[in-house]
Design a protein around this nucleic acid. Sequence first.
DNA 1: CTGTTAGCGCATTCAC
DNA 2: GTGAATGCGCTAACAG
Lengths: 366, 366
Amino acid sequence: MRPTVHDIAAAAGVSLATVDRVLNQRAGVRSVTREKVEQAIERIGYVRDVAAANLAKSRVYPFIFILPAGDNSFMRGLEAQVRAAIARSPVERTSISIVSVPAFNAEALVAALDEAQAAAPAGVAVVAIDSPDVIAAVNRLRAARIPVVTLVSDLPGSQRDHFAGVDNVAAGRTAGSLMGRFLGGQSGSVAVLAGSMLVRDHRERLDGFRAVMDQDFPGHALQPVLEGQDDPAQVERLIDDLLTSQEGIAGIYSLGAGNRGLIAALKKRAGKAHICVIAHELTPHTRAALNDGLIDAVLNQDAGHEVRSAIRVLKAKADGVAVFGAQERIRIDIFLKDNLPFEQDAAADTPLDRGSNQEPAQGEED
Amino acid sequence: MRPTVHDIAAAAGVSLATVDRVLNQRAGVRSVTREKVEQAIERIGYVRDVAAANLAKSRVYPFIFILPAGDNSFMRGLEAQVRAAIARSPVERTSISIVSVPAFNAEALVAALDEAQAAAPAGVAVVAIDSPDVIAAVNRLRAARIPVVTLVSDLPGSQRDHFAGVDNVAAGRTAGSLMGRFLGGQSGSVAVLAGSMLVRDHRERLDGFRAVMDQDFPGHALQPVLEGQDDPAQVERLIDDLLTSQEGIAGIYSLGAGNRGLIAALKKRAGKAHICVIAHELTPHTRAALNDGLIDAVLNQDAGHEVRSAIRVLKAKADGVAVFGAQERIRIDIFLKDNLPFEQDAAADTPLDRGSNQEPAQGEED
DNA sequence: CTGTTAGCGCATTCAC
DNA sequence: GTGAATGCGCTAACAG
């Protein structure tokens, strides 16, 4: 059997209460006694049973998720995943609230962060905007000893505890590599469509993409970056303009959201020469476009995994325990029309056992 | 607060013991009483606290993992992941033993399965071989009410509870799609290198690959499949022969293991025209080859994820609770040299928090 | 058939 | 400063 607090107490010749004080670094123990207990812990190799501890404490973790509002399939999917986590709350001992803020608005985000701090939660997850004010607000949270995890878009200059998202530079590089190879010998320039250079993930993807294109595929000139604010209507206009004003566009890299607009614009030129399109995030729209051959590849980050990972990490940080790195690494999924996962009920995130007997096997996630 | 067994007892006007009997479907309760209790449970919306239950039971889950022996980087990596899980055993309340069997040997596998059954574990995970005898052995385990999860290679005809692995048909299709597009306008035939057609994952990959090549890229003829038994030396010989005897090989799809031999053979022809190579499983060898440009793409399944998933599912099956599908889906990772994850200490599976402050952020897993 | 009671590993209140 | 006692939600003897 694995050693318990009783064993420590016996080994150190003290009572349970004293052991507990040492374990939870509370005051009221002579340093000699503390010493004794710590050695006993070391000696018998004690590791705390977190489940039992949580039971005794009736612990619940109040978390706040701050997400951008707006008509953006990916973000709405992310929110659905948070809601799914809320549904699991009783089992996971969490109590999660969602705060919605206008997209690409640093001021509003700062206000939301400060408000979150006032609520004194056990942790905050936030889709960051890269600005000094936001960094300062995050650091205030940390100064108040509230764990912070950035979600999807990181904030490297800050004291955030962890980033639950993909390596966006690598994602951009991958997009560049695929673009270059898919274009093969063809000539023509390549356009880049972003949401906003305010958010770090978009900037990083652009950097990665540009680096690979410049170095490995210099034959394809890059057009100036278009910023569509992740707004479908605006994106559609931008792409319409691009395709009518420019000749010889061989590829488009859409590194943000608002792909609905892009797809609408592409549909209008059915019959003309194929443009190689690489986009981000698997949504009902990009999935359909992939199947139709309008989009050649989709790079995806699994929103469900990101949310679950953020929660696991926030819990770990709140408890001051180490997180298990390998489990929290968010992958860049590359989807061609050949490896699309079977469609799932958007938010439902069915607890059914796919890949099980009875139901058809089909490969799984996390 | 969430309702407890006491609340059920009060609501149904019975004692704790009776509630427990109903909850755990034990005998010795009049059906009227049972009825009453069940209605109370339903009415107050009770959900069992598994952590508390396990605490009370001091439950441990004895699991057996049956893995193929042999000099195969992927399988050794898989084993390392199981060992990592064993290291976590005290915390996860598991007790895992590893059984090693000769690769591609159905008879030995059947013997191992029967032996496992005799040990009466709480669950068995097995890298399956597709044969009627093995199916029968797995079904015997199930008949003995022992949960079985297939790992990496599935056994669809059997009663196995779950498959922890990737959709190999999709993997093959993806390989085909990448191969076709990477070859672009080039002419030439494509060779396929497998381990053995005895294991289902290899067969499925071949089927998927062939389907896409035939349909979308008929210009590239497929050479007869080479079977290298996942043995590096044998593979090297096969590829050497192929490349000297055949002209105009434009691509090679290596759908099994033994890539060390393939890479060795490729190295010998440095300077000659590039052959587009797509392989499976990210190992130190394929990683290096990807970086050197010898391999163009690697399709990977995350062994760590597969092992952790298998354990989660076995636990769930042992407890008779539903598994959370989304979390158990094993992805097909596509690696180009541009999105290689940072190197990790092979088996170490460091519990350090990558992507955390202090240490460089770099994206995470599961 | 049903109820009482002790205890899993840990945290905490209140005495000493 | 330290210890004894009680309870978190659930299970498992053991009585009745």
